[in-house]
Write a protein that binds this DNA or RNA. Structure first.
Lengths: 140, 140
DNA sequence: TTAATATACTTGCATGCGGAAGTACATTGC
DNA sequence: GCAATGTACTTCCGCATGCAAGTATATTAA
């Protein structure tokens, strides 16, 4: 179990810098945008987004501010309930996510290429899924 | 692979609060002390400790300061090389680590109890080991 | 209707972290 | 021996984050 904690830090240390330098997005920003990309209408309420990213609402507020400025994301309101603010992917945002996901995919292949069979990967994903299953918006 | 990132945050969210409230140690502090506990003479150079925790040296400096104050850890110097500062577990520190590890063990069992067989756990540990193998001081 | 409670979000504050710069010491090459 | 380089550590600064408090709106109960 302790290995899970360590493995994450190894992985993050490897992924984060390249994503940042190539696409100007932090790993967490990418994960946020990916959640939006998979949501209906490419948008989510801020509370739901926080739950999916297993983080706090205040983090969402602060993370989305710069993304709005760069135009990857925009605010939308709910006519039924004026408390809620949706975070919605813009068209620019969608293309940017797509590009970055390709890079991520390439890096994943690079990491797994050596000693991992497809079966190993599937097994790992399955076992880890038991942890992440408690979260909404689980990602394959 | 994304699941690995999510699984860690789920796990940390579950472990951290209880460890803090029961033993007054953060999860990262415990991991630090555990590394010392497994090292020869119960001590490590600060650089090596940073490498084992996959963190920066400055983090080690800041984390050890409070641990020194509470007497769980003490400084030792190297007569051969006066640049190095060892971080060494005190006797108090050793008993505290032992107590806390028991709590951790209990929590782990609680988490895995339901849907996990011993074989599942072993498989997961093995697969994750491929990531952590690059770090010194890997922990079972 | 109105008061009490619940929900969605933002802001202020404190904490934990990494990186760069600074200091002290050790090692290498001449 | 001494200059140049490398290593161990600390401190400073900025960034990301959670929590608690505050605001605005919605829902529930009387």
């Amino acid at each position: 179990m302790l290995r899970l904690l360590r493995a994450q830090s190894v992985l993050e240390a490897r992924l984060s810098p390249e994503l940042g330098s190539v696409h100007g997005l932090g790993l967490n920003e990418l994960l946020l945008l990916m959640q939006l990309g998979r949501a209906p209408l490419h948008r989510l309420r801020r509370v739901d987004l926080a739950a999916r990213l297993n983080t706090s609402q205040s983090t969402i507020t602060r993370m989305t501010a710069p993304l709005e400025k760069t135009g990857l994301v925009k605010r939308e309101s709910d006519p039924r309930d004026s408390r809620v603010g949706y975070v919605a992917l813009t068209k620019t945002g969608r293309t940017r996510v797509a590009e970055t996901e390709i890079t991520l995919q390439r890096m994943a292949e690079e990491i797994f290429r050596d000693r991992w069979s497809d079966k190993d990967i599937a097994t790992l994903a399955g076992l880890l899924g038991r942890f992440t299953a408690t979260l909404p918006g689980d990602i394959a």
